[in-house]
Simulated scan of single mutants.
Amino acid sequence: MPQKSITKEIKVITDQHILKGQKENGFPVRKWKISLMGINANGEEESLPYVDHVEYILHQSFEQPLRKVTKFPFQLQEKGWGEFDMKIMLHFVDNADSPAMLDHDLNFQLNHYEVEHTLSFRSDIKPSFLKLLNRPVETISDRDSQMSSNDSGIDGKAHKRRKDAILKEKSKRVKADGSSDDDSQGDSSAESGDEWDNEINVHVLAEKFQRLQASDLIEVIKMVKANQTSEMYVREDGEAGEYQIDLRTLGDDLLNQLWQFCNKRLEG
């Protein structure tokens, strides 16, 4: 009886936003980035130790349509005004299996969206690569921490009670339907760069949350609630005493406010 194929789950993560004051061909110029993440059996994000490098095949209007990225999370950064369909080719360690080709729709309907894919590997794959596929890896959620806070200042009740406030970079799968206002086929002037390097690093911000006092966490929650929009992933579970936030959906303005708040509290 033939053995079943081996499958691994991954997702393609897209983040994008408009660059203020920049337009081309009548359309706003947007800054976007794409990264890849593994998903384990528990639905948690994990690294991709079995992927050697990734090639992004962009629209032909780009100056260099083929981009090679060698480090996890295999992030590609660009800017432009047009939506297009791209190819993402995953090359595996030691060329143990044929490259996997993913189709990805780069669109501007949401500032953040994620699309999941299933990779299938031959059952007779070389033992060393099979061991790599089955090797336990550190999950991204290991960065998350659980902290207790006093919520009496939030609900206005006289008595004090303790609850846990979890601020995590929670995975969110979004279905993108409908059409975008930018129905272009490509970007004639997009260029690569490190513009994202000057923005808030959500991983570092999450670590700063872990060092805050309980009273400061209450202020963080208040700030998020005061600035919350429909595009943000924010969920409060009163019974479990949990408050969950996907930091990547908060937007630049709120992230900057939270960053400055954390720095002020931690440096004081």
Rank of each mutant, 00 (worst) to 15 (best):
M1E: 08
M1L: 13
Q3M: 12
T7Q: 04
T7L: 04
K8A: 01
D15A: 09
Q16T: 15
H17G: 12
H17K: 14
L19K: 14
E24M: 10
G26V: 04
F27T: 11
V29Q: 08
R30F: 04
N40Q: 04
E44M: 03
S47R: 12
D52R: 09
I57A: 02
H59L: 12
F62D: 11
E63P: 04
L66E: 10
L66D: 09
R67S: 04
V69Q: 04
V69H: 02
T70C: 05
F72H: 08
P73Y: 13
Q75K: 15
W81M: 14
L90C: 01
D97W: 03
S98N: 10
P99N: 06
A100D: 01
L102G: 00
F108E: 01
F108Q: 01
Q109H: 02
Q109T: 00
H112R: 09
E114V: 14
H117E: 05
T118N: 06
L119Y: 02
S120I: 04
P127T: 07
F129S: 01
L130N: 06
K131P: 09
P136T: 10
E138L: 11
D144Y: 08
I154D: 09
K157E: 15
H159E: 13
H159S: 11
R161G: 13
A165F: 13
I166L: 14
K170P: 03
R173C: 05
R173A: 06
G178W: 04
D182V: 09
G186T: 07
S188N: 12
G193L: 15
D194T: 15
E199H: 14
A206C: 11
A206D: 06
A206V: 13
F209L: 02
A214P: 11
A214V: 02
S215H: 14
I221L: 10
K222L: 08
M223H: 08
V224Q: 01
K225A: 12
T229F: 04
S230A: 03
S230R: 05
D237P: 06
E242V: 05
Q244E: 15
I245W: 00
I245S: 00
L247H: 11
L247W: 15
L250E: 05
N256L: 14
Q260D: 13
Q260G: 08
F261E: 06
C262H: 03
L266F: 03
G268A: 14
